[in-house]
């Protein structure tokens, strides 16, 4: 009896120790299957088919070696659309980060109006991109749109916001800012709420003005968050397609056409899977490089 009471706990806790068995694999298996079939396999299949002249329309498949990549290097449309993607990223990232920060600072200090600010800044992020594009198409509409009504009110001439190459990219940037800045706002707001109140109180007791507290306490403490938002934003902007495609009702033309749209056109309009895959890998490579740069610049976020 006495022996049993001594031995029992040991025996019972034994399986709780880490014993190697296949059980864990069963837990992971459903996810791993989906992951391999719908992510790993397409990555490899895409790489493979970029070496062939595979067509969505079927037909004979011929090995091309690297000639899809060579064609890509010569194809001006690839570099034009890559430039549009990069130019969009350059134009949109600063306002998306700074306006998000400003909104968070305003909403964080707001008392009675806090609910209104949080609602209105974040709400557009919850709208499907098609809803966003249709609303902005209507606002940008050159004859009856709200924006040209405002321009006319100030005595200006109507502008064809989306079709004029001087304004087309800005139209995309403003629409995107309205739609997605709420996400950055939210991340900044969470970071602000994590700053201990005592820091501000102590500084206020020492006679620091609100402006000094903003520059000396709040902003330095937001540096990590800013780094994170910057990288997330760069990656998101490089993947732009939806709103450009929808704002231009499918025929963006070369003015704003981003790289993904060119991939889409090559793959689904010209049925050239091999060539479209080759172009995809260009974007893939750029995004992976940005993500790696993140690890270099902001080493391992241990406490995230």
């Amino acid at each position: 009896m006495a022996v049993d009471t001594v031995r029992a706990p040991v025996e019972l806790t034994a399986p709780a120790r880490r014993t190697r068995s296949w059980a864990g694999l069963w837990f992971a298996l459903p996810f791993l299957l989906i992951y391999v079939v719908f992510m790993i396999w397409p990555i490899l299949a895409g790489l493979w088919s970029s070496l062939f002249n595979t067509s969505l329309a079927g037909g004979d498949v011929e090995f091309l070696g690297l000639s899809n990549y060579a064609e890509m290097a010569r194809d001006g449309a690839v570099w034009d659309s890559l430039w549009n993607t990069v130019w969009f990223t350059i134009l949109s990232t600063p306002p998306l980060v700074l306006v998000g920060l400003g909104m968070a600072l305003l909403a964080h200090r707001a008392r009675r109006t806090g609910w209104l600010l949080r609602f209105s800044f974040f709400m557009p992020f919850l709208l499907p991109v098609t809803v966003v594009a249709l609303i902005w198409l209507w606002i940008y509409q050159s004859d009856f749109g709200l924006l040209n009504a405002a321009v006319a009110w100030f005595g200006g001439d109507p502008v064809a916001w989306i079709n004029d190459e001087r304004t087309a990219m800005w139209a995309v940037v403003i629409c995107t800012l309205w739609w997605t800045v709420g996400f950055n706002f939210l991340l900044y707001l969470a970071a602000l709420q994590g700053i201990p109140r005592e820091l501000h109180e102590a500084a206020a007791v020492d006679g620091a003005t609100p402006a000094q507290r903003l520059w000396r306490i709040t902003l330095p403490l937001l540096r990590r968050t800013t780094g994170l938002i910057l990288v997330l934003q760069l990656i998101a902007s490089l993947k732009i397609f939806d709103q450009v495609y929808l704002l231009n009702e499918g025929n963006a033309g070369p003015i704003t056409r981003p790289l993904i749209q060119y991939v889409y056109e090559q793959g689904f309009t010209s049925y050239r899977i091999g060539y479209a895959s080759a172009i995809s890998y260009l974007l893939f490579l750029i995004i992976i490089l940005v993500a790696f740069a993140q690890f270099k610049i902001f080493p391992a976020g241990r406490d995230d």
């Binding site: 079939v37 992510m39 990555i43 991939v263 899977i273 895959s277 974007l283």
Partner: peptide, 17 residues
Amino acid sequence: AGIMVPPQALIVPLFHQ
């Protein structure tokens, strides 16, 4: 490693699959 993969870059091979 998959966290870094942009799904947008996979539309063509994924559709083929």
